[in-house]
Amino acid sequence: MSAYLVRRLIHLVPTFLGATFLAFFVLQIAPGDFLTQWALDPKIRPETIERMRHNFGLDRPLLLQYLIWLKNLLHGDLGVSFMYQRPVLEVVWPRIENSLILVGLSILFLYLIGIPIGIYQALRPYTLPDYVISFFAYFGLAIPNFFFMLILIFLFVKFKFAFGWTPFPIGGMTSQGFEQLAPWRQWVDILWHAILPAFVVVTADLSGLTRVMRAQVMEVLGQDYIRTARAKGLAERVVLYKHALRNAVIPILANIGGLLPGLIGGAGLVEVVANWPGITPLLLDALLQQDLYVNVGIIALSSLLLIVGNILGDLLLAVVDPRIRYG
């Protein structure tokens, strides 16, 4: 097991270097840089821009910029944001935390809703409820997330007009007066705000999960050992929960690692529309302004998180499924 872990961690290095170099390279191909936007400002002289370009190190060759970035990375330094004039980690990390709250909650939703629904469908396949549920799951899949969020915001504004209150806040991450709340109330407040966008994020992935879960349970229920269990007179409840479900859930857990990338990306545009101060709004700003080190830093950190997520998924699988051994 530990040998496997070490090997995975060693593999992580070239992947990480590849991803960051790719990002660095691709970002620098685009014409212009962070300072180009100042050029049309009548108040700023061209000499000033040249001087700042030198100060930011943007006049150096690409490879050199990357090597210096790597060198600084060894010190835990991801560079300085041009926009914020602060270390990248300081700018990016709070945003990643916010995104993770949203992603975490939506994963929770996904499993809490998706697994029971899939099981329910598997137990009553090809019936009306099965079709109705499938249709609603598809419904969420087929609407672009960013548009669905706007629809919900509109409906909630109308709701507020009609009744004077809303069950969930319309956009944002914290309420006014958040700072004065007790710590546990702060958490409740954030979660309360996260429910709506997390729900929108979930709708896109729900149909996939319920379909897999339904198929899995159906397949497991057709296996010999289930027939044996039934034949020896076990209660249907025991057969279902103790024998069937355990085995059916395995591939789904294995997929957790693979789910993270989709969810971080999926939370993306929803974050913008729902005004969630996550990482996507920052990335869009940074890309627009060509804030190089913020871009590379975000990609470096999120790819690191993804790789770690994948490894965790593998480990989880090994814990759940005794048949799997990593050597």
Binding site: H11, P14, T15, F16, G18, A19, L22, A23, V26, L27, I29, A30, P31, P261, G262, I264, G265, G266, G268, L269, T280, L283, L284, L287, N295, I298, I299, S302, S303, L306, I307
Partner: peptide
């Protein structure tokens, strides 16, 4: 497979936008 891993390591949306940003 390394290449696949590298591509998979960058979140879908980021990769999409970053790639698009590279072209004028």
């Amino acid at each position: 497979m390394r290449l696949v891993e590298i591509m998979a390591a960058i979140p879908f949306l980021f990769l999409l936008i970053t790639l698009r940003a590279a072209f004028p």
